[in-house]
Amino acid sequence: MAKATTADNKAHGESRRDFLQLTAAAFGAVGVGSVAWPLVDTMNPAKDTLALSTTEVDLSPIQVGQSITVMWRGKPVFIRRRTEAEIEEARSVDVSGLIDKQSDAERIERPEWLVVVGICTHLGCVPVGTKTGEVKGDYGGWFCPCHGSHYDTSGRIRKGPAPKNLAVPDYEFLSDTRIKIG
């Protein structure tokens, strides 16, 4: 009998000790985590960086067929005033055959204006084709020289290693000749 009691006590004591150890460890882990997270989070964009996240652009100097590059959040944004032919080309594409399936209408506010982030979705180079005289690639939009991605007049990926279309930033028309990006 005595033997059984000792064993009982031991088992009892052990589970009690296990419980204490586990709770102590759990609290310790929560404590470490709650200090670690702020450290990790300091490395995320700071408030001043976030505050720079809108840019207003005056569109009036841009002629039909011309493009400009503006900076937004440290990245280039391409704004192209498309010609009728370019708009037509962007619309006539069969969406189901695209790498990243999006119709032109999903990518614009007003047909004449194409606004896209000028960063190749492959590994982040800046495609050429914005300045007059630059190569525009096989589809009349942009060409990324880094690993050879071709984008069309809607900024969609058509050929090459990039997986996605050029991103469309959030933007709104403040007036007919002014937009706010971000």
């Binding site: 990790v40 490395m43 995320n44 964009p45 700071a46 960086t49 996240s53 959040r73 440290g74 990245k75 960063i119 590994l123 982040g124 180079c125 880094c146």
Partner: peptide, 29 residues
């Protein structure tokens, strides 16, 4: 720096947040 940090964006779901975290912004800056 741009090309190599962008490698992490290839990871599904967590890729983009990781890259922003590495940059501390929205591009190498």
């Amino acid at each position: 720096a741009t090309v190599i940090t962008n490698l992490f964006s290839a990871l599904p779901l967590v890729g983009e947040p990781i890259v922003t975290w590495l940059w501390g912004g929205f591009s190498v800056d």
